[in-house]
Structures are given as structure tokens and as C-alpha cells.
Design a protein around this nucleic acid. Structure first.
Ligand code: MN
Ligand code: MN
Ligand code: ZN
Ligand code: ZN
Lengths: 142, 142
DNA sequence: ATAATACTTTACAATAATTCCAACTTATGC
DNA sequence: GCATAAGTTGGAATTATTGTAAAGTATTAT
């Protein structure tokens, strides 16, 4: 189920030039549930697309984010992580290995009055932190 | 109501050397509700404490965080922000000016089964994003 | 098709945040 | 007071990310 390749030109006002490097990046991102960092994207894509430049990766990520086709996550303290799934959902991050997993359950979090009164709220994101299954097991063992 | 200076030596296993530079940093942080960045802390503290080094600020922040006396926020995409209020609470960040404000309302967010089953959840943080009152007004005007 | 135009890519330089380091300095327990 | 583990410092080093200018390419208008 392609979610990126199609919309690339579909929505109005969102058309971008279809360059092979972008297609390669889209292709890597499409359906990717690992919330990769720019570096991971670069590493993977440049393996198949020799001349890929780091700047192109960043450019593309910024362009996609700007057009609302990609979500930039700030949940990892070390680097930005990217999520091709732009539907509203939440995340869990492992404090040990930094794995990020989706939380697609609908969490109803009402915006508190104190904020709603004078702020403009455009997004609500819940981040759960802790240990992923494997790190949890590893910690228990030793 | 001092929240930092006292606990500094109070809780067992949390004792740290009381150096003047640390006290200066604690003092700045104590009761601070601005969620400052390392640089803001450095700028302010070094004004009164001449020889303060950036490394010391980072060292101290890391030490405090490690001892659970300070919370490191990853909500700002550009830099880490620090919160001396370690009681569980949530945040709103302005997408325009990066102001972070506390949300002390008790938001009941149950951990979804899909996560609770095999992960170990140690924290839940809700981040609201949008425009703060002044940025909201400014945007409306022009 | 062709050419003009605007947008992209690339290699590399430049920033910016944060960490590392090695030589001093100091707080603290005895 | 002294020993010493812990902390401080300036500067170098690292890492993530952004900027740049020249060269390349897709798209648009002829
Ligand atoms: Mn996700
Ligand atoms: Mn706070
Ligand atoms: Zn893990
Ligand atoms: Zn604002």
C-alpha cells in the first residue's frame, strides 16, 4: 500500500519535482515503521543510489515535512527522527536502545482549559518512555 | 520554596560536592519556570559567576539529571531544555517562539494494552503544540 | 522538439549543540 | 591539615544539521 509515491503529485499545491534521488528516499520511507534518522536514511538509500548526498537527504526531508507528507519527531534526545505516517498517533521510545514504536490506540486527551483559553493548540502528542521488550529482558537477566 | 538547594544533600545516595559554580547553577534553576536551554543557563549564570565554563554547566546538568533532580526535555527540536520541576506534568510548546509552558492539569492517559503487555513504561508525557498567546495575536494581525 | 526557467543535486564549508580531554583546583572525610 | 576523589576549565573534538555555489535536470512555454 503505497502512501508516499502516489500523493507525491496528487494533492494540489504539493507537487514536487520527481527526481530519482527523491524517489529513492520516498521509496525507503514508504511504509517504513522504524522512525529512522537522517543518517539511517542516508546510509540505506546511498547503498543503492551511489551518488546520493547527505544534503539531498536533508533537503528532501525538509521539503516533505513542509508539505505535510512527513512528520519530524523530536522524541529522541540525540537526533531528529522521521515518520512517514502522518496520521495522528503517539509513540513509545525505549530509553536504552532508542527504538520508537507506534501507539495507534486512540488516546483521548482533552486540552486543559488553562491552555485552551489563550493558546492555539494544533497538535497533541503523547510520548511513553521506558524499556522495549528486548531491553527489558536484558536488564532483568544481568 | 526552595526545591533544589535543600534536596541537594538531603536524599541519600544523591550527595554531590557543593561547589560554588554548582550552587550558582542550582540557584538559577531553582523555581525557574522557563525551561531554559544550557546556553541560557550559561549566559545567565556566567554573568554573576565570571569564570563559569560551559562544560561545567553541561556537567552539572547531566549530574542533576542523573540523580533525578532535573528533567531534560526533548520537546524543542533545536536543543535540550531543562526543567527543575521533576513532578509529573506536561507541556505546551509554541511552534513559533519555542516558549514552553507547564500543563499541570492531571491528564489521565492510560497506557494502551499493546504497549503495556511487553514493554516497561516508566513515563508518560503529553506535549501540546501550537501558538502561544502573543504569537497567536501577532499572526492574526498581519 | 527546444530553449528558458526554476528547481535540485552535490561536495564541501560552516554552524551549532554537546561532549571530550588533560591539567589544574577544591570540597570533604578522616 | 591532608589525601584524594570529584569537579572545573579552556579548548579541541564530535555530531547533527544547514548553507553555498557551481553544475545538472525536470518542467514549462515556445
Ligand atoms: Mn509513528
Ligand atoms: Mn515544566
Ligand atoms: Zn530497547
Ligand atoms: Zn510563541
Amino acid at each position: 500500500m503505497p502512501t508516499l509515491k502516489k500523493p507525491l503529485q496528487a494533492a494540489p499545491g504539493r507537487k514536487m519535482k520527481r527526481t530519482p534521488q527523491r524517489l529513492a528516499i520516498f521509496d525507503y520511507l514508504d511504509g517504513n515503521k522504524k522512525h529512522p534518522s537522517a543518517e539511517e536514511i542516508y546510509r540505506s538509500v546511498s547503498r543503492t543510489y551511489q551518488s546520493m548526498s547527505f544534503a539531498t537527504v536533508y533537503n528532501t526531508l525538509k521539503a516533505l515535512t513542509g508539505k505535510g507528507m512527513l512528520r519530524e519527531l523530536t522524541i529522541d534526545p540525540d537526533r531528529k527522527r522521521y515518520d512517514p505516517d502522518t496520521s495522528p498517533h503517539h509513540h513509545f521510545i525505549c530509553l536504552q536502545c532508542r527504538k520508537i514504536v507506534d501507539v495507534h490506540s486512540i488516546l483521548t486527551v482533552e486540552t486543559p482549559r488553562e491552555i485552551a483559553r489563550d493558546h492555539l493548540v494544533v497538535g497533541t502528542h503523547v510520548e511513553f518512555t521506558g524499556l522495549c521488550p528486548s531491553c527489558k529482558k536484558r536488564k532483568k537477566m544481568q
